[in-house]
Amino acid sequence: MSLKIIKAGIQDTLQDMGRYGHRQLGINPTGAMDKFSMQVSNALVGNAPEEAVIEMHFPASVFMFTEPALIALSGADFHAHINGEPVPHLHPILVAKNDLLHFKQPHHGARAYLSVRGGFEHKTWLNSSSTHLKAHAGGFKGRQLRKDDELFLRVPLPEGLIAAKQECYALPWQADVHWQEDPHEIYILPGHEWNSLIRESKENLFMTAFVITKHSDRMGYRLNHTPLHTLTHEEVVSSAVDFGTIQLLPDGHLIILMADHQTTGGYPRIGHCITAHHHRLAQLAPGDKIRFRLTDQLMAENLLQAQHTHLQQLAYSCGNRLQDFLNKHHVTH
């Protein structure tokens, strides 16, 4: 009862909502880059929102299921195929024993999420399943997935459901995740050193596009743009930062801190990308452009609330549809 890695992807890791309560020791939260999509994939298979999932970059791993399972894919669309046949994005999918899951090409987004009904069997570290790559702890053996790794599934698929399927197929409902929104527009809140920027640099921040460079990963995105300038060169002693914090490097370029960011930093904090837009950031890749827009605390909180409500509704609807399906196939839940 497992998921086997037939071929390793470039960086596939087990992730959850993150590891909190240990930043005082320098242990950063890590967790899924796109926690919205992670929760969507869990909703589709009827998992708790915080269940650990596999986060994939392209090229992603080739997986083989040693037993039937109910899975879902969300986030980036990498044109998933099972046994060579395309499978739809954002649907619950029933897979059979020995089914091969692989990804052909990145269609949109940068990070895809694979959830399995019941979740994966694994040990937690400091109450989280997230892989901490630097500390070599958490997730699957504290590292990214490699060829021949085998992730055991926690719960077998109900017998009735297995009998219901002859071959892999997608269940006939899809999660609505508003892909029509402009993913390149990122709302920001001013940071503590916002006013150290000269006026022209402040204007440039909102009038020019910022390109994500290839020096971008789960730790942070370095941006390419006309250098920004500060009025003074005041030293900032190290203090806490967060996912979304935008720091100004000494060369005038910006870095946006992402899921694997350090707990503290000593560069000026120009701004902070709002939490509700972290999933947009997470789905951007090197070469993509960002446009920043200034917002305020109330809007940031309202958008986060709206996103959460959307996820709750999605989980509720998916749960109902799945339960109806299971009942129809006389499966005791």
Binding site: Y20, G21, R23, Q24, V237, S238, S239, A240, D242, T263, T264, T275, Q297, L298, E301, L304, Q305, H308
Partner: peptide
């Protein structure tokens, strides 16, 4: 959710969604 000390500062992380229930509409958790 968490408090972190640095050289000369303290940072408190908080759960916006849980706190929204405690405050009046139109006001901020911040």
């Amino acid at each position: 959710t968490e408090v972190v000390s640095a050289y000369s500062s303290l940072t408190i992380y908080y759960d916006v969604l849980a706190l929204r229930k405690r405050i009046a509409p139109g006001t901020t958790v911040y």
